[in-house]
Design a binder for these strands. Structure first.
Lengths: 150, 150
DNA sequence: CCCTTTTCACCCACAATTACCCACTGCGGT
DNA sequence: ACCGCAGTGGGTAATTGTGGGTGAAAAGGG
């Protein structure tokens, strides 16, 4: 079970490769063995799943109904741009060009560890996203966490 | 289960390291094994969780819904600046630069033990925080503690 | 069907950051 | 007074992040 956390400002090179931060690699299950699945995320970003976490997600998706048009639409969007990829010797992964375009990524990226997946943002888009939220951290925490957890 | 208490005025060095007071270290569960997670706190301060306490928090966070936009926002803010770190031979921990900036910490820090977590403040910001609260200790106690606890 | 061109995967090398190690000072306890 | 632990400061070596180069495979055109 992964437990990604932290943010990292990295660069993406001319070949569309980004480095997976060493701090995040430590939490990838050994059986995932450098294999990741990259796909479109919620909001304007890219999600990267280690193989074991992707398998779990896939099992949930399989339970959706192929006769429900909404379900079909969701599956197409999710899988449309999904791509499996392995790390090279420098621990880099290749991000497909259409996903980079979707997330407006050019040269700099912000990498976020969100427990079971990794997110890749254009730093400016992330700032815009944060600014678009009206509520403060403290307010959201209070409403999201009904029970006392922190 | 941790039971931190007390306040300590320590210094932070040029490499962004602060010492965890020996008095607080005594209350860290042995299984946490010098591993801590540092993240953004409520108000202008930094929270430090021993590993066992962080795991509890993380388990609660995992129950949030990844399809709820408010939940996603909260998770991103919480994990954005979270970093796992182990103590060095001198019982120091490294605080990421962006967290130091967030809490306006330069050279001196105020370390508070708050039961299951440790807080790190700029001493001046803490004074300002105290001054900003209108109600007295006694008044707050009356509203917070309905049952007789002391 | 073969040759040309492009793309992709693998490899090597450098630079900056990080982690680990050692050394010093002062306070408290014996 | 001495010993030991606690807090503070700095140096060195390994790891990490980044850039580019080469050969093999694939794609496309004649």
């Amino acid at each position: 079970m992964s437990a990604f956390k932290g943010s990292y400002t990295y660069s993406i090179d001319s070949k569309g490769r980004i480095n997976i931060p060493a701090r995040l690699r430590k939490y990838v299950a050994p059986e995932s063995n450098d294999t990741f699945t990259v796909t479109r995320g919620f909001e304007k970003c890219i999600y990267i799943y280690p193989h074991d976490e992707w398998i779990k997600l896939e099992q949930n998706i399989r339970e959706l109904s192929p006769t429900n048009s909404q379900h079909r639409f969701f599956m197409r969007l999710l899988l449309h741009q999904a791509m499996e990829s392995t790390l090279d010797a420098q621990a880099r992964i290749i991000i497909p060009k259409d996903l980079l375009q979707f997330a407006s990524i050019e040269s700099e990226v912000l990498i976020l560890g969100i427990l079971e997946h990794i997110e890749v943002w254009n730093p400016n888009e992330y700032s815009k996203y944060l600014a678009s939220q009206q509520n403060s951290y403290e307010d959201v925490a209070q409403t999201v966490l009904q029970k006392k957890v922190m």
